[in-house]
Design a protein around this nucleic acid. Structure first.
Length: 952
RNA sequence: GCGGAUAUGGCGUAAUUGGUAGCCGCGCUAGACUUAGGAUCUAGUUCCUCACGGAGUGGGGGUUCGAGUCCCCCUAUCCGCACCA
């Protein structure tokens, strides 16, 4: 053990950083006020799940970027809201608790503490007074409250906004709005009325097919399942019919698409959301079913067989191809199957439907290419051609989309094509690339799906372009009263129940099996203590174990309030809300986090409006970012939020991958490790992951390697140039690959400022990139060099070159921050520092403005130097330096001149120049003279900007 | 299959948005200083060539006086969705 006794003037970040962090805390430097004359600006990070693993270097990347911008905006005179909190409810926190056998509340508390320590070390400018935690009753009070509002509102299609369900009830009761099924509202029982309203409420209870994950013991939303496996843990997920709460997010599908036009997000993320919402325009068409009297052909067992419903509805995006329909397909779940199936086909159809229903989601997805189906024996009638069309059942038609029934046009739909080929059904061409040119579609190897070309063999639309034919067919269908234009969405309602412990309890109790909201004044409904919080395989929620929860032993609500009948007690909802419940509105709560009367005050939201800059990962594109937009739009509709879109600008920081290091062990000698460059044949060695903490610039610390694990105790090495060089590979950052870089280690070794700068220097924030500590020395050197510039500041008059450099630097840094190009800022500051060092410039008038300029990136070192210059205030509050354009005026520009497109020379010309003068200048110039010799120029082309062409 | 993005030295990247390609940093080479270095400084470092020169931004074509940048066609990689009618 040896100590470095730092010289007084050394850059001693270990002493500087905690000192100023304490200073900022005491001064409340980053406090944001809800009242201010300054313009407001809201910079938000996606708050973290406090998982057990702590932060790795990937987490702070976005936080650093947003912190730089928040600090910059603060220095530009904005009142900046830059809060932080924890998404502490939900599966990740609970899984960690279960794995470690502790109570989730306890592990969450510990994890938050650890996160906070790690975050504090990095010198972020968060206003910690506004911290929110989704598991805090003071916070989830308002999550539950919002749920009640969702329950008590429905979506009014005419007004295109949420409205109180009581309005709907009033209109139903007065008869102003008839019931869709023709019944009379006032003649219904309460149970029947409530059942009816469930189809309208924005939070509703229904039997729906859900993603059931047995291993996690809960249902999952669509975005939590990928490829039939749970995102969290990768366990199989099955399709199951369960009674669940859902949010009617589909009601907002159109507005969720439209709203994307108003926000400043990356085109790719907007596209991800558009795809997820999956809007498609088309037509709904009713097909009649051919009625037959089957009694005569029946053997007697199905005497009553009659087709009850005479028609069914399909959805198509290609109404123009209706003349090419050669069969119809129903999904196996379709309710009409049993009615229309003929007795001869019944056994086969029932067998198929049973088989299809028992297939797991994973099997179905894995065997997409496999064609299966069965004929019902029934026929539909094409409304435009009067043709008989056989009706089939197949699981390639999905129950959840459209009406679960399609018209099949095998010539122009690849799935119908495959189906027709498999079952030898006719294929008829009705679209052609060229007018009137057709071929035999049974010879085709694939269907012609593109929406281009002309209609053929298509009755009254023959010869029309596809687009025209579409419109014409829909017009005709509407005229005939057998269909209409319509829009379908891929987006499904969000399943909101989780059979888990660690989440917000639903503020719902049941009276005669009818759900009722707990009165708002009884909120928050606290999460109870339970003897066992683990999920159950059967789906019984762990809250069922609660013995005290404002309820009695029968799990009946005993919440005391005037609003609930005291004489009886009612069972409470036992599910909890999903992870996205708490994260869907947290950005609004930050505006007014301590309000115990409301979610947030109207003053607060009217002041802050919306998040101006949101920074976080694109992996939330189909989850949180959709739910939050929906949540916000609902709150907007009911008059709480004042902006329809919650996040004005969004930056997606790229994922940081791990860079694993390897050593190569000889297969012949288990103690022999061969340096990478000496390995001749990689088949003769085994690559072994080695902890990146004992590798420096790909050089293995052989001593520490021997100590790393007992089996390497006697390791011998074949070295190159006395060094052991490791191999490397880019992999996911994970403990098992030994490639996790902990930010604490780097802060200890280089300081937070170096880490902040380096994470930015790595490359564009939005780009995914591997973590590689190799370059961090360069940034560290820069800060040390920068530090030395301030060792002997003088009051000497700076040279004009230095002044120009300063103003160039200010301009470049300002521009770079504005366009979120944080990596180039570091370069700019390095160039400036290098030049000042080389010129021996120590002038106060140059060095002083550089401090507020660098402060957003490296707040600690600049704060220390600022105080060394004799200032008492914080550099973080110093106004952003302005450059003087006059200092940047060039004496002349350097023009590359292209001559006949072949020869090229460079010439410096005055700024204000017209084309004659330009030519004269070129002609005067020695090189110009040379090139112009013997040629007669016809004209000089003066292209805007910087180029002059001489044409001869 | 559909949709989106990316491709520049040994490596991370930059290029005033159509104007001298390779800034800045890592690494490497040579040297200086030093009792020492997890310190500092100087010079060099796209490739080929002793050199003169030449080639060069994944490949091929195009527009332009001029293309890393714009257009078309490939190739590769990454990401999202995926039987959505």
């Amino acid at each position: 053990m040896h100590f470095f006794i730092a010289a007084a003037m050394d850059y001693n970040f270990n002493a500087i950083e905690p000192k100023w962090q304490e200073f900022w805390r005491k001064q409340q430097t980053y406090r944001a006020d809800n009242q201010s004359d300054k313009p407001h600006f809201y910079v938000l990070d996606m708050f973290p799940y406090p998982s057990g693993a702590g932060l790795h270097v990937g987490h702070p990347l976005g936080y650093i970027a947003s912190d730089i911008y928040a600090r910059y905006k603060r220095q530009c005179g904005f009142n900046v809201l830059h809060p932080m909190g924890y998404d502490a409810y939900g599966l990740p926190a609970e899984q960690y608790a279960i794995q470690t056998g502790q109570h989730p509340a306890k592990t969450t508390e510990q994890n938050i503490k650890r996160y906070r320590e790690q975050l504090d070390k990095l010198g972020f400018s968060f206003d910690w007074d506004r911290e929110v935690r989704t598991c805090d009753p003071a916070y989830y009070h308002w999550t539950q409250w919002t749920f009640i509002q969702l329950f008590n509102h429905y979506y009014d299609e005419r007004q295109q906004k949420a409205r109180p369900i009581s309005d709907l009830v009033a209109r139903l009761a007065s008869g102003e709005e008839p019931m869709t099924d023709g019944r009379q509202w006032n003649s219904l029982s309460e149970a029947e009325q409530q059942q009816y309203l469930m189809d309208y409420r924005l939070a509703y209870l229904a039997d729906i097919p859900v993603n059931w994950c047995p291993a996690l013991g809960t249902v999952l939303a669509n975005d939590e399942v990928v490829g039939g496996l749970s995102v969290r843990g990768g366990y199989p997920v099955e399709r199951k019919l369960m009674r669940q709460w859902s949010l009617r997010i589909t009601a907002y599908a159109q507005r969720l698409v439209d709203g994307l036009e108003q926000v400043d997000w990356s085109e790719s993320l907007k596209e991800i959301q558009r795809n997820w919402i999956g809007r498609s325009e088309g037509a709904a068409v009713y097909f009649n079913i051919e009625s037959r009297n089957l009694n005569s052909v029946d053997s007697g067992t199905n005497e009553d067989f009659k087709i009850q419903n005479s028609k069914f509805e399909i959805f198509t995006t290609r109404p123009d191809t209706i003349f090419g329909v050669t069969f119809m397909v129903l999904c196996p779940e379709h309710e009409m199957i049993s009615q229309i199936t003929t007795p001869e086909q019944r056994a086969e159809v029932e067998a198929y439907v049973t088989w299809a229903k028992n297939r797991s989601e994973r099997e179905r997805q894995a065997e997409v290419k496999k064609v299966s189906g069965v004929f019902t024996g029934a026929y539909a009638v094409n409304p435009l051609t009067e043709e008989r069309i056989p009706i089939w059942v197949s699981d390639y038609v999905l129950a959840g989309y459209g009406t679960g029934a399609i018209m099949a046009v095998p010539a122009h739909d690849s799935r119908d094509f495959a189906f027709a080929r498999h079952f030898n059904l006719p294929i008829r061409q009705v679209v052609s690339l060229e007018k009137d040119v057709t071929s035999d579609p049974t010879e085709w190897t694939e269907s012609m799906d593109a929406k281009t070309g002309y209609s053929v063999n298509s009755g009254f639309v023959t010869g029309m372009k596809v687009k025209e034919a579409m419109a014409a067919v829909i017009d005709k269908i509407e005229e005939m009263g057998i269909g209409h234009r319509t829009v379908n969405f891929r987006l499904r309602d969000a399943i909101f129940s989780r059979q888990r412990y660690w989440g917000e309890p639903f503020p719902i109790y049941y009276k005669n099996n009818i759900p009722h909201c707990i009165p708002e004044e009884c909120l928050p409904l606290l999460l109870p203590e339970v003897s066992d919080f683990k999920p159950t395989a059967t789906g019984e929620p762990p809250l069922g174990h609660a013995t005290r929860w404002g309820w009695d032993e029968q799990h009946r609500c005993v919440v005391e309030t005037d609003k609930i009948d005291h004489k009886t007690v009612f069972p409470l909802e036992l599910s909890t809300m999903p992870g996205f419940a708490g994260s869907s509105g947290y950005y609004l709560r930050y505006m007014d986090p301590h309000n115990d009367k409301a979610y947030f005050s109207s003053e607060a939201v009217n002041y802050w409006q919306q998040v101006d800059l949101y920074v976080g990962g694109a992996e939330h594109g189909t989850g949180h970012l959709i739910y939050a937009r929906f949540w916000n739009k609902f709150l907007y509709d009911i008059g709480l939020a004042v902006q329809e879109e919650p996040f004005r600008k969004l930056i997606n920081q790229g994922m940081i991958q791990g860079r694993s290091s390897f050593v190569y062990r000889s297969k012949e000698d288990n103690n022999l490790f061969i340096s990478k460059g000496l390995v001749k044949d990689f088949n003769t060695v085994t690559a072994i992951h080695v902890d990146i903490n004992i590798v420096d610039n790909d050089i293995l610390d052989v001593e520490r390697f021997r100590q790393w694990r007992p089996e390497f105790k006697d390791a011998r090495f074949e070295l190159e140039d006395g060094k052991y060089v490791c191999g490397w590979e880019i992999e996911k950052m994970s403990k098992s690959m030994f490639n996790v870089q902990n930010p604490d280690d780097l802060v200890e070794r280089y300081g937070a400022d170096t880490l902040r700068l380096y994470e930015m220097f790595l490359g564009p924030v939005e780009q995914a990139k591997p973590w590689d500590t190799n370059g961090i020395e360069g940034v560290f050197r820069f800060l040390k060099k920068f530090w030395r510039l301030y060792e002997n500041v003088d009051d000497a008059q700076p040279t004009p070159a230095m002044v120009k450099l300063l103003h160039q630097t200010i301009k470049k840094v300002t521009d770079d921050i504005e366009r979120f190009s944080f990596n180039t800022i570091v370069s700019t500051m390095m160039i400036c520092t290098n030049e000042l060092t080389a010129a021996g410039c120590h002038s106060r008038s140059i060095l002083k403005p550089l401090l507020p300029l660098l402060a957003p990136l490296a707040p600690h070192i600049t704060e220390e130097l600022w105080h060394q210059l004799g200032h008492e205030d914080s550099v973080c509050q110093v106004a952003w330096p302005q450059y003087d354009p006059a200092q940047l005026v060039e004496t002349g520009f350097t023009y590359p001149v292209s001559f006949n497109g072949k020869m090229r020379f460079t010439i410096e010309l005055p700024v204000d120049i017209d084309s004659d003068a330009a030519f004269a200048a070129v002609a005067e110039h020695p090189s110009g003279k040379k090139y112009l010799e013997g040629a007669t120029p016809k004209k000089v082309i003066f292209v805007p900007k910087k180029i002059i062409n001489i044409v001869i």
